[in-house]
């Protein structure tokens, strides 16, 4: 069973085509990296996936269910964290997670336990009752991640999760992401930071001119383009085309 499949997904803003027949699939329990140049349509594709944007063509299948026709199943099983704060600043971490957990239909008992586990996992202990507006940048990222995971999603979508963080915080965050992944959550992540992608993703798709031009494991990229830094490989792909 294909976990998540994009099938000729298109998106245009007026006459400008941002995505043209994007097709790839994400396997269950992997960390899938989607990279591309700025404005290449990564975020747009993720927004289409979660229903925040409407595709102008194509299909998306999540556990063999048509996401574009019936979005609720995917929404219920997806966590989404972006580069921006998507929490209510006036609410505490506990309140935010409780609120969003209930929006996802999590039972109160489960919610409490899940919250405790995630707080421990993400190192947010002691900040449960602090309003988000008083959080630092790194804490906000982790808080967003916590809320995105509060309903135990099968798929976690991360859009530039480490942007604006210092290297230590980035490393810590990726550590949490790996733990989450090991718990069985599939990760779909976009990032400009190619070294992060290289170190943390099992497979990487490169988006160019609105299409996924290559899709391979890091090992496959290295065998094709030589044992060079992934940033060099990315540059070559962007200039030459597919794998």
């Amino acid at each position: 069973m294909v976990f998540l499949k994009f099938e000729k997904v298109k998106k245009s803003f007026g006459k400008k085509e941002v995505l043209s027949e994007v097709s790839f699939d994400v396997k269950e329990k992997e960390i899938f990296g989607l990279i591309g140049v700025s404005g290449g349509g990564k975020t747009t594709l993720l927004k289409i996936l979660v229903g925040m944007s409407r595709a102008t063509g194509g299909k998306i299948w999540f556990e063999e269910k048509d996401v574009l026709e019936k979005p609720f199943y995917l929404r219920k099983n997806t966590g989404f964290a972006t580069q921006k704060n998507m929490l209510f600043e006036e609410l505490t971490l506990a309140e935010n997670s409780s609120y969003f957990g209930k929006l996802y239909g999590v039972k109160r008992g489960n919610l409490k336990q899940r919250f405790v586990n995630l707080v421990e996992l993400l190192g947010l202990g002691g900040f449960e009752d602090l309003q988000i507006r008083y959080f630092s940048g790194g804490m906000v990222k982790r808080a967003n991640l916590l809320v995105a995971l509060i309903h135990s999603p099968k798929l976690l979508i991360l859009d530039e999760p480490t942007i604006g963080l210092d290297p230590i915080l980035r490393e810590n965050l990726w550590g949490y992401i790996h733990v989450i992944n090991q718990e069985g959550t599939t990760i779909l992540v976009t990032s400009h930071l190619l070294d992060e992608i290289e170190q943390n993703c099992s497979r990487v798709g490169i988006l160019k001119s609105g299409k996924v031009v290559t899709l391979a494991t890091i090992k496959e990229y290295k065998s094709k383009y030589g044992n060079k830094p992934f940033s060099k490989i990315f540059q070559e792909v962007m200039s030459h085309g597919s794998l």
């Binding site: 609720f72 704060n85 996802y104 809320v147």
Partner: peptide
């Protein structure tokens, strides 16, 4: 106009 509104939108509520 809040970012949190998007999180609400993508929820199954």
């Amino acid at each position: 106009n809040r970012e949190s509104h998007f999180r609400e939108l993508i929820s199954p509520t």
